[in-house]
Write a protein that binds this DNA or RNA. Structure first.
Length: 551
DNA sequence: ACCGCAATAT
DNA sequence: CATATTGCGG
């Protein structure tokens, strides 16, 4: 609405010229921000009160692409009012306050981001992302066919951008992603199956359901070549960096050791170029962000086997796989199958599994408090931390949303997973439910390796999936491969009454282990139950035959 | 052939 | 030192 595909099309300097509505009661602050924005060649119109701003918007709806609104510490109402009145305009809130509930409420009301003052130039620089997002997701249920042209137009813009300026300052990707992370986090573009009509031109073999964003990343990476982009492989060999030889164009040869089961053709993304500028891959940080997400590029630089780096993403897949299969079935080969990570070998998985089990073994079944992970003391088998609140919770389907998640039902010792019975004994012919892409605990335990015992959160509320097992892989891929925002903000969802929002916010605060209600739809018990029944899961909750686990 | 464990290597 | 890899017995 505010900005559509056609708007973007031909906007050669995008995001220059972005029209920003700035609403800030503090004139000093306003001036400062305005200046920064203008330095980036954004067009800024400042308002001191929401009435003026709203008036301007209503009279000229198409004037602005994005709004930046200050939330006054003393009075939030102005901002709230603005948010409620302006649904179409991507609105970023800024404030001195750090009140979590207020922030949540703002987000719930439709704000697209909440930034703390002072807002850095870097943060302001990237507000265009929201506009692009809006354009891409316009109308929520916009016809898919319309997406393609949009994507193309943006892609072409990107091309232009890159060609025009050799130093692509215009495309602030990597740095921003690492620091401001949440900017584009809310948008998980799950393309419906079969709608993968957006093959990135330059990427040989796209995954189904690859995020549009990721596709663009790929595109960018292709173009940007040597920029010190993030590592885009989810599995990265530890000695990648040691490759002195700059010009290795044909280096990465994925060694398909014994990967026979994997239906997906082998190395699809092998073409990741290691950019000669011996990129400082020392940046350990985010390795799991970009497009190659499913591909552990096992590199074979000089013919020797290299370690697989078990990133959080990878581990997440792993755990998910383990839990989908029961313990009984959780054998390396199957896990490998389920994970669908190319280039990963059974050995890798087996080894990981070993470690995984070890860890679990040392954690008392009854509590997956997660604290053990920090205090590395695997020797204490009988260590009972007093009912600590689980760091990573499991909004288990078995529990209604309001039941204390602490006491795991599946008293099965080694299963930290609160809902073991479910997936474990599901008939093989049924696809395991679609695991959530959101792992609450992940946000708490930022780094990988910390979360061994972390259960896979139970199925998401709605999973309209066919029960055709043959489709699992695809779905898996689509779902799993992304990062962790399962929540697709839909404008509709945001139309909540104030009280409801308050309630939700309170609940979220008082029960941090539950998934944030920002998606505004806590998994409803009935949806979960129906899912279960649909899968005909009811039989024999447990039987203790985790023989493999128990020595 | 494959799993799981233990030793070894990084 | 933690963790991945390798080796070996079942």
């Amino acid at each position: 609405m505010v900005c559509t595909a056609s708007d973007l099309h031909g906007w050669k300097d995008f995001p220059k010229g972005l029209r920003v509505l700035l609403l800030d009661g503090d004139s000093n602050s306003a001036a400062e921000i305005k200046t920064k924005l203008e330095e980036m060649e954004y067009v800024v119109v400042t308002y001191c009160n929401e009435n003026d701003a709203l008036l301007a918007i209503s009279s000229e709806p198409e004037t602005f692409h994005v709004a930046i609104v200050e939330v006054m510490a003393s009075d939030h109402d102005g901002a709230f009012k603005f948010l409620e009145a302006v649904k179409d305009l991507p609105t970023i809130l800024i404030s001195n306050i750090h009140c979590l509930s207020t922030m949540m409420k703002c987000i719930a009301l439709g704000a697209i981001e909440f930034l703390q003052k002072p807002v850095s130039k870097d943060k302001l620089r990237n507000i265009w992302q929201h506009v692009v997002h809006k354009a891409f997701n316009a109308g929520g249920s916009a016809v898919p066919s319309s997406l393609k042209p949009i994507k193309e137009s943006v892609a072409s813009i990107l091309h232009l951008e890159l060609e025009n300026n050799e130093n692509k300052n215009q495309v602030p990707h990597e740095l921003e992603i690492s620091s401001g992370d949440n900017v584009d986090d809310h948008e998980l573009l799950l393309l419906p199956e079969g709608s993968d009509k957006y093959p990135a031109p330059s990427t040989p073999q796209q995954k189904h359901g690859m995020r549009l964003v990721d596709q663009m990343n790929c595109l960018l990476e292709k173009e940007c070549g040597e920029q010190d982009r993030e590592e885009s492989k989810s599995v990265e060999t530890t000695c990648t960096a040691q490759v002195e030889n700059s010009q290795l164009s044909d280096k990465e040869v994925i060694k398909e050791e014994e990967n026979s089961t994997d239906g997906c053709g082998a190395a699809s993304n092998v073409d990741h170029e290691l950019h000669d500028r011996d990129n400082i891959s020392s940046s350990e940080k985010n390795k799991s962000k970009a497009c190659g997400l499913g591909n552990p590029c096992r590199m074979k630089v000089s013919g020797k086997k290299l370690k697989v780096d078990w990133t959080a993403e990878l581990h997440r897949k792993f755990v998910q796989a383990v839990e989908q299969l029961g313990v009984n079935q959780a054998i390396p080969s199957r896990i490998l199958e389920l994970m669908k990570v190319e280039g990963l070998t059974r050995h890798n998985v087996a080894s990981h599994l070993q470690k995984y089990r070890m860890h679990k073994r040392h954690v008392l079944p009854k509590e997956e408090d997660g604290s053990w992970s920090s205090s590395k003391d695997p020797m204490r088998k009988n260590y009972y931390p007093h009912l600590q609140r689980p760091v990573m919770a499991y909004p288990s389907p078995y529990h209604s949303n309001h039941v204390m998640p602490v006491a795991p039902i599946g008293s099965w010792g080694h299963m930290a997973c609160p809902s073991p019975g479910v997936q474990m004994w599901a008939p093989p012919s049924y696809p395991p439910w679609r695991p959530p892409e959101t792992w609450p605990w992940k946000s708490y335990l930022g780094v990988h390796g910390e979360a061994w015992g972390c259960p896979v959160t139970p199925p998401p509320p709605h999973s309209p999936f066919s029960s055709n097992p043959h489709h699992i892989s695809r779905f898996e891929y689509v779902d799993v491969h992304d990062k962790s925002y399962g929540i697709a903000p839909s404008p509709v969802d945001l139309q909540l009454a104030d009280e409801e929002i308050d309630k939700a916010v309170k609940e979220a605060i008082s029960k941090p282990w539950l998934p944030l209600p920002l998606g505004l739809k806590p998994p409803s018990t009935e949806s979960v139950l129906s899912e279960l029944s649909r899968q005909q899961i009811s039989t024999t909750p447990f039987h203790i035959n985790g023989s493999k686990l128990l020595h």
